[in-house]
Write a protein that binds this DNA or RNA. Structure first.
Lengths: 234, 234
DNA sequence: AATTCCATTTTTGTATGCAATTCGGCGGGG
DNA sequence: CCCCGCCGAATTGCATACAAAAATGGAATT
């Protein structure tokens, strides 16, 4: 009825989530059901369900009887979340070192090669940033899968949205990307020779470097959409 | 913070959750929206939202176009989840050792004393089991709070539902409860003297003992609803 | 007797109406 | 001049109607 033939109802959850991650919806912005249903061309019911899910993800926070606002993260949030992420991803890397199959190891090698190709295709303009992000995500996901603990994968997925929100890769320069690639190689080597401690430590170090990168740039956009009229505590 | 949870009338989410935890709704049982709305006396709309939230918690799993079923956990699930729990709670204990206030330490002492009182009030019949669970939860929650990392607390809350589902405390005998109490004392001592490594290790050990206790009894009810309903400790 | 196909039944997905609640401003009183 | 309470507007929470998809059961056919 509403959309051109064939297109079934769009997924509200995915639509809003990507809008937040891509920065089209800014932290602090209020989202009313009516606004979203108008924008997306669906009724309020599916919008409500999507909001419930986004709340569970921690991407939006509910305001009593007044809908939700896009969540804003403080420096402290970043530090705390990255602590957890380092813990979980380090654990995952350690288990991956133990439990990886040879096929998975090959896939990791491939992911690193791809990463390298993206990098040598230099001139990292926006479009290439996206490719690099894909390669990076692929590598990490392969490690999560190799840990053979679906619950762990699930938990990591929860803490991984934050760096997405900050879109930290947009601020990487070529040198920093090369550094990240080197770290991936270290991790890969540790997993290849099944050295649990090394893999764990290398991954943790890698994560903390990512954290510091975010912290270094957070002042750029940590402030929410409305700086002036703001009630801090709630 | 992250949890909205403003309950005005009858909160469907809480009602269904406690029903699952208390074992009134058995793993594998299918929950249709109509059934729940009839049972709880509300319309389908709030039921749907509650289901979305329970899905995010992992307490129910959706069936394509067929509603949800109460999730059932395998031994492997238990092992994997407890690995994560040991990781997170150990981390929390370590940070609690570092960042606890003296007041929080006092509260922990109080929680341990209460625990001890419940124990010496022996003859652990059903009712006392509940008290002991409360004391246990209180102690752990105090540690989580003392870590001063809300995100960590949030994540732990996600992995802590599992032992609730298995209601492991119902199978503890007096001796085992005394052992658990001793472990709490150890953890408390470590936190008191701000020994990070000790606190972490003691907590991890404590968690793994809980895991083994669950694993030892899991065969009793790991299977789903199709088996005869079972009320532990009766 | 087994299988396939169709009609019926169940049950979810979506849309919308209505009541309840909260916010924002406005006017009166101290 | 400032504070307090009231009224209208905005917006969610819940209930219900309707449509669509999947299962279910039965009948006809091989």
């Amino acid at each position: 009825m509403q959309f051109g033939g064939g297109a079934v109802a769009i997924d509200v959850y995915e639509a809003v989530k990507t809008s937040i991650v891509q920065g089209e919806l800014l932290p602090g912005q209020r989202l009313t059901e009516e606004f979203l249903s108008n924008t997306l061309g669906v009724s309020r019911t599916p919008v409500r369900e999507a909001m419930k899910r986004l709340e569970a993800d921690g991407l939006v926070t509910p305001i009593k009887r007044r809908g939700v606002v896009v969540r804003s993260f403080t420096r402290e949030d970043v530090q705390q979340i990255y602590d957890i992420r380092a813990l979980l991803e380090g654990f995952a890397a350690g288990h991956a070192a133990l439990h990886r199959t040879d096929e998975q190891l090959g896939q990791m090698h491939h992911a690193v090669s791809q990463y390298e190709r993206c990098l040598t295709a230099r001139i990292h303009r926006r479009q290439h940033v996206h490719d690099i992000m894909r390669c990076n995500n692929l590598f990490h996901q392969l490690i999560h899968a190799s840990a053979h603990n679906p619950h762990l994968t699930f938990m990591i997925g929860k803490v991984i949205v934050l760096p997405l929100v900050f879109r930290s890769f947009y601020w990487y320069n070529t040198l920093e990307i090369a550094g990240s690639l080197e770290e991936h190689k270290h991790i890969l080597r540790a997993i290849a020779c099944q050295d649990v401690e090394w893999a764990t430590a290398a991954m943790r170090s890698h994560i903390y470097r990512g954290r510091d990168h975010v912290l270094a740039h957070i002042s750029d956009l940590a402030t929410s959409i409305t700086d002036a009229p703001l009630k801090p505590g709630e």
